[in-house]
């Protein structure tokens, strides 16, 4: 466990990192840059997980998001590349309305969070985090677990079919 002041420091650092790189993802005009900042955001979020004593989740975050999904995104960018890459990630005509909406949602959300009373519980997190998660998955949540497996299989088959394209002759 980190000491309180250290964790506070780390939290602010990570927060700034996450928010800044997320803004970069959204605001930059080059889609490749956006993808790279996306990876940075994911890594920052993994740090937040560690801060919250969710080490296993942090590992999954790095593996799945930073490893697999970001790479997928980069692949997709490469395969659909057309025209000038430095102008590949532009805003559409809704950008102003969307900005107002998102700002309003953020302000409202923050107000509501401040108004809400949470019953904070103090307690020791389980020492063996991975073991606890494994118990949950193969015990109480075994059915959703299996369904998730089926979902992944279906998504994989669907993605292959869609990406390959149906042969028009058949």
């Amino acid at each position: 466990m980190l000491s309180t002041s250290t964790s506070t420091l780390v939290f602010w650092f990570l927060t700034i990192l996450i928010v800044a790189s997320a803004l970069a993802v959204v605001l930059l005009r080059n889609i490749v840059h956006s993808a790279l900042f996306l990876i940075l955001t994911f890594v920052g979020i993994a740090g937040i997980y560690i801060l919250l004593n969710a080490e296993f989740l942090a590992a999954v975050q790095i593996l799945v998001y930073a490893g697999a999904i970001a790479i997928l995104v980069v692949f997709a960018v490469m395969l659909t590349r057309r025209g000038d890459i430095s102008e590949s990630n532009l805003f559409n005509k809704n950008y102003l309305a969307a900005g107002v909406l998102c700002l309003a949602l953020f302000i409202l959300n923050t107000f509501l969070i401040g108004q809400t009373f949470w019953t904070i519980k103090s307690g020791e997190p389980p020492l063996n985090n991975v073991g606890a998660i494994a118990d949950a998955f193969l015990g109480r949540y075994v059915l959703p677990f299996e369904v998730a497996a089926v979902l992944l299989l279906v998504a994989m088959v669907g993605a292959i079919l869609l990406a390959r394209g149906v042969n028009q002759d058949q």
Binding site: T15, I18, V19, A22, L23, V25, V26, I31, S34, A35, I48, V73, A76, V77, T80, S88, N89, L90, F91, N92, N94, Y95, A98, G99, L101, C102, L103, L105, F106, N109, T110, I113
Partner: peptide
């Protein structure tokens, strides 16, 4: 933090032209 990240992501989803973005 979560709320802010959500709003940034929402802005990206609503205001970008590129499907990958």
């Amino acid at each position: 933090l979560g709320g802010m990240l959500f709003c940034i992501g929402l802005y990206g989803a609503l205001a970008k032209k590129n499907a990958i973005a």
